[in-house]
Write a protein that binds this DNA or RNA. Sequence first.
DNA 1: CCCTGGATGCTTTTT
DNA 2: GCATCCAGGG
Length: 827
Amino acid sequence: MTMTQDWLQHLNSDQRQAVTHPAGPLLVLAGAGSGKTRVLTHRIAFLIAEQGVAPHQIVAMTFTNKAAQEMRERVDQLLDGHGQAGQVTISTFHSLGARILRRHAPAAGLEWNFSIYDDADQRRLITRILDEAGDERARADVRRLQSYIDACKNRGWTPSQAHENAHDARAEADAELYANYQRALTQAGAVDFGDLILGVLVLFREHPDLAKQYSQRWQHVLVDEFQDTNPAQYELLDHLTLAHNNLTVVGDDDQAIYRWRGATVANILGFEDANEAAARVKLEQNYRSTSVILEAANDVIARNDRRHAKKLWTERQGGEPIVAFTGADDREEAAYVAETIFDMARQGGNFDDVAIFYRTNAQGRLFEEQLRQWGVPYRIIGGLSFYAREEIKDLLAYLRCALNPRDDVATARVINTPRRGIGKTTLEKLTAATSVPGVESLQGALLLTLEDRPAQNDLFAARRPRPSNPTERLLIETVEELSGVSRRGIDEFWKILEATRDDLLHYEELTPVLERLIERISYFEHLERTDSESAEDRTRNVGELLSAIEEFEQDPNSEALIASVQEAMPDDLDDLLTTAPASLRLRAFLDRSALVQSTDGDNGPGQAVTMMTIHGSKGLEFPTVFVAGLEEETFPSLRDPGDSEELAEERRLAYVAITRAEDRLYMTNARRRRVYGQFKDTEPSRFLLDIDPSRLIIDPRSAAKELDYARDRRKRLGAPHGEFPEPQMPSQGGALYDFNQAPSSDEHLAQDTPDWESNFSQSPQEWDVTHTPAGDDQLIGVTVSHSRFGIGEVVSVSGSGDKARLTVDFPAVGQQTVIRKFLKVLG
DNA sequence: CCCTGGATGCTTTTT
DNA sequence: GCATCCAGGG
């Protein structure tokens, strides 16, 4: 039996057709749950094993690192024993862009060593430019300008193209700012996210030979989630397929949810027009959900027009009805979800099987609170990224500006952190001096204050201030004449930079470099001084950063990344600092931390409920799904009610949410919700009302019974929509839950909370919730720390040894019951 | 220059 | 409700 036949057995005929498509453009319209990743991974394997394509001739692009990671693993499995999977390039659009740009930095007008600015950095830079220009629209407009610049880049427009496309005064002013911004970025030796794509486009436009080389190197290009590509990414694909047009795109127009980020469904809707020879395969069999869930999803999406016609079907006929619940307010909604999950777990359910989705990150907080009350373990995906935390950004900024002296945003961030007397005025003077030729950067300006220029400064060797007029001369003098506190502060800061650069030269590993930096700037003391309450948490985060670096250095995958950074380095580069091994590692690590959203998600052992925004849920599936906040204004969240495209996208978002569910789906809303701290009455989401009532049952504990919905629905739709079924009990049954008596965190948890993390997954039936044996009394009063709850004091103990259950009073979250082995005894 | 307390404005969604 | 910004006093 050949390999092909072996694989084909696992594929349906449509999937097989897509997998074995020989060459040329191919559009795979893959409905939710129809096995698109399967098709992509099998196709890669097919090309290698059956078509004789070398692994390094294949590139597959995704949008998220998670997707890339998963694809890599699955290709790896398929090619097991052939050891070739590692040579296939599987990457996000942005990571690939970063690699290509580094590789050809000089041709792209960049230094090899460029920094990648995230959106906070981007905002700071825009603010600075507006300030310098004395532009009064400043503050209020920063965000708008930021999205304007992004929008340009998403379209593939350079500043001059933006200018050509500006048709009124304001647009021209915006384009002007874009040009200034771009100049500032270049001067800072930096690129933003948009440049990771646009920069490559410009490179390819100006050097068609390069584009051709890449398209010859990669003979087959595969793209996941094609419906979410923007025009810039589309053009990139054009360049990459110049030599062959072997482009496989997989996507689902019904799941296009990134229009706001510049994606255009036109790419997928018009793919066949743009590629006349394109073959098309439709995947319509859903392997994920019950027919009830699938039909509900269809009820919602059917109201959109301009779709590729397709009809999803499943062999899983029937299934549990969707459970709807309305809370009196948002807190009650969250309490319902938490309790329902708690009950499921009692009946033997698995936390890993459950997910909660919401429209905005802010909604997550209430669920956190309630899950905690019920002792249900959870993890949050997305939200504030690990790398977005203050303390992490500070330390990374130090490393960034040590490595790239021109990185002004990073320099400005830490020049006075911890406080060393360099205040606003001094910073302004320094910044002003950067406009003088030969100074160029903040660090260049710092040098002006130093008596004798440090020998180490190859970095600046060629640079001397070259003021060409009295104004510029004045700017230089202003800095040279700085004295007292700020001068000492600058000295101190400079010494820190030098010492860090020295460490980068002399240590092989990154960890000691960072450790010594932390020590040198007394960072932990700084944390304690600025906010002693959060200091413990932040200190732990810094610890996590250190482990992340260590892990990164030990991960065999990073070797490839580090190697690619080295490979990207020009041969004639003889700068000691930038070629040192630790510098290479640092560059690679910084790239990764800029491009990877967070370390959340795969962390933490043990079972946990997953919470995230609906956007974050794309591509995932869970046996049980809660979709929360189904209210007008919240979901759909319509900023511009007149924009029908916006509503269509919200609808697709609802479609994505519903189709994540395999077996059980809960849809919840609240009658009133706190918005900006104020209660606001709400109406049920139109998406809820779009679902045929026969697929729903209303939980009897719901604050809104059947008729409320019926009335709302009729009012909204203007016509009766068939008879509504009698209210039914949910399949879980059970007594009404009195929401006025939510479990108090001490009593309830101390006695009834089973110890999920250690016992639950193995033998949930064996919990003994009434038996609480007396335990080690010595632990009472002891201070302990927990990875999530922070520091607390032990109140009571039951059981003994590692499995003992301790009730701990955490100032941050109140009393919680935790297993001994998850606690660290502090004293 | 640094800290504080009060005013302000804000929320989609993410690489 | 919360984070960020700003003015004013130390």
